[in-house]
Amino acid sequence: MNAAAITGPLTLPSASAPAERRGIERDGVRLLVTNRARSTHTHAHFYDFAEFLREGDLLVVNDSATLPAALRARRSDGTELNLHVATAIDRRLWIAEPRGAATPGEVLQLPGSGRATVLAPLDPQAPRLWFTLFDLPAAMYAYLMEHGAPIRYGYVTEVFPLSDYQTIFAREPGSAEMPSAARPFTPGVLRTLRRHGVGIATITLHCGVSSFEAPERPTIERYSVPPETAELVNRVRRAGGRVVAAGTTVLRALESSVHDGISVASQGWTDLIIDERYRLQTADALLTGFHHSAATHQWILRAFADTTALEGAYREAAAAGYYQHEFGDVHLIV
């Protein structure tokens, strides 16, 4: 996989803070609209999102809420590191990412007399994500709410409250990182969408931790596609409307829940990999953020648009001063 080739020198500057802390509204971020059929790129603002959808289209959103999934951990030698809690496997067993080297069997002390034992890497060839056994004084969600903080990477220089990491659709807690493509949605945008006759349906997919550092395969994530959503997707497509996935998480959930081209209700874990060889069966358009080069994110985009179109979009975005990452600008590919 040569994902880095897409952007290279065109890596966008990272948004270091939420829009509303940069003097604009949530829906004031930029919106680049790439039309694949016409090979055009249009610049807009997110508050005009509805202008690009039509009556009879269906917007599918992820209702997963973000957890404060970063914990401060202490090794037996007293040094500290962050432990990012990514994906629940079972009540004590989670996939987690120690932000530093880990040794199998290593015990990390956590706040409030918690303990994490790093068991084994998910992928021994790339030991970044680890099966980790937690001994906590409370259930994980309650524990994180008390002791955790939102996961933050180097380009976000300040600590922002958890509410900055929730989208307007957030209902079910479980994501280690915000499903950020839907962050710019506001009540105003939703009202306009309804006025335009655009339907809205939800799925749940709990985002694990992103792989910014290495071009790794996406790991498993928990998801659920409810029957109402599956039915709406089928009905809209039959009627000639477009299904717009608000985020690659939505795309992954929808595509994990399809049988013979028909969207079905299902839930569980998905290990589906969407890349340029993948033939999409459920979605016609994708709303997504900008994320740099190596991120597996780029693989998914290639299922939607060819390299030329994506390179063109990134060039346009770079020239117009777009920002990338969870607090950055967004991209609609139709």
Binding site: I89, D90, R91, R92, L93, A120, L133, I220, W269
Partner: peptide
């Protein structure tokens, strides 16, 4: 991957298989 628990505890049994499922 070593997970302490009693196999007769259903929840623990699921934990083992869930690790494989992961």
């Amino acid at each position: 991957i070593a997970i302490p628990g009693d196999v007769a505890d259903k929840r623990h049994a699921h934990e083992l298989v869930n690790a494989a499922a992961a």
